[in-house]
Design a protein around this nucleic acid. Structure first.
Lengths: 193, 193
DNA sequence: CGCATAATCCTGACAGTGTAAAGATATGAG
DNA sequence: CTCATATCTTTACACTGTCAGGATTATGCG
């Protein structure tokens, strides 16, 4: 059995996994590059060659997190009754992701550390945005409707991730989802006509 | 003329002002206590006696920021045509504050560093929340309407503060405000009946 | 007023952080 | 096989937050 090969083999992936663990435990504001290196069982300067500096690692993590984010929405959308239900389910997935991975959510939407000019990150973000636009245009909605659905979904998610909206926390799961569905429905373009 | 009195006189207030300057320049994630002390022209350990640790200073700053936040909403609400317009203006104030003081906005809503169990901070937050509830109940709205208006206002503000919503950035000021008003209006309880 | 006590601020020290430079080791192309 | 290159470690430095102890000033009690 190999004790400790000088070359890790796939350190980049290992560092990303360690970084995600570090992020979920310490949060963005407690994130430590040296601690990530320790998790991966490697020297503290090893990450530099793969990601440059700490923000580089966070940038890669944000890009990966963005696709996970979109995956969560997609998973919620399957089995939708119609296109309107599909848009509502996307909003529920938005909130689900924020509650399940609050630190990753904060990294993506509320941190200045990732380099949002990075092509990978831009691509991942655009995929999510284009998907949202598709959901709304299918319903005959325009720019205003896109903004409405996005802002409301994001507001619900961000406030819930930060435990700011106690009204929702106190409710039972079914009642809570019913309220959220009602709120999200208002953002969709009018159903008649 | 007194050169440098050993006792500052009102160091607590001076540190708060310096901390706000530091926050707006470096952001929450780049905030440094030693840098704040340097701004106030005092030793690096001086803040400890007034605020305990760094999070203590950020807690005090968050409480102060919360009242500033509410002040911005109040200023926007004056001169409202009716109660509905008043609620919409509150949402516009929400967004205005996030754009004018993004770092303070992030400290209040998207940071885990302030101690949100602090009585001062709780009081300031409750004042803002109660005001929001008042805006909605006057219109005959219930819990769902409160959540709708809050989430949408917050989503618009947070996404705008992070420069995530390019659709709004590109618009002219008047057109932008018109779109936001339209979005916020959907969150209010139905006008008829 | 005089003085002890408390409040305020500073200096020094320590562990932890991110990053850069230089050395060690493995990989792979020729 | 050789050697350039990629990968990783070691070392070093400046910066951070926090703690302990000493210096200075204000305050209230006698």
């Amino acid at each position: 059995m190999t004790e400790k090969p000088y070359h890790h083999g796939d350190l980049r992936a290992a560092l990303l996994a360690a970084a995600e663990a570090e992020l979920t435990e310490k949060g963005v504001e407690g994130f430590s590059l040296r601690s990530v290196a320790k998790r991966a069982g490697v020297s503290h300067a090893a990450p530099a060659h793969h990601f440059g500096d700490t923000n580089g690692l966070l940038t890669a993590l944000a890009a990966e997190g963005f696709t996970r984010f979109q995956d969560t929405l997609d998973a919620r959308e399957v089995g939708a009754a119609d296109d309107r239900d599909r848009a509502v389910r996307a909003g529920l997935g938005y909130l689900e992701f924020a509650l399940a991975r609050p630190a990753l959510f904060r990294l993506i939407f509320s941190s200045v550390r990732p380099d949002f000019a990075s092509p990978d990150l831009i691509a991942a973000a655009n995929r999510a945005y284009d998907h949202l636009v598709g959901l709304v245009t299918v319903l005959g909605g325009g720019e205003t409707d896109v903004i409405a659905l996005w802002a409301t979904s994001h507001g619900l998610a961000d406030l819930s991730a930060g435990h700011k909206m106690r009204t929702l926390q106190g409710k039972a799961p079914e009642e809570r989802e019913a309220m959220i569905r009602a709120v999200l429905l208002r953002c969709l373009p009018a159903s008649d006509r």
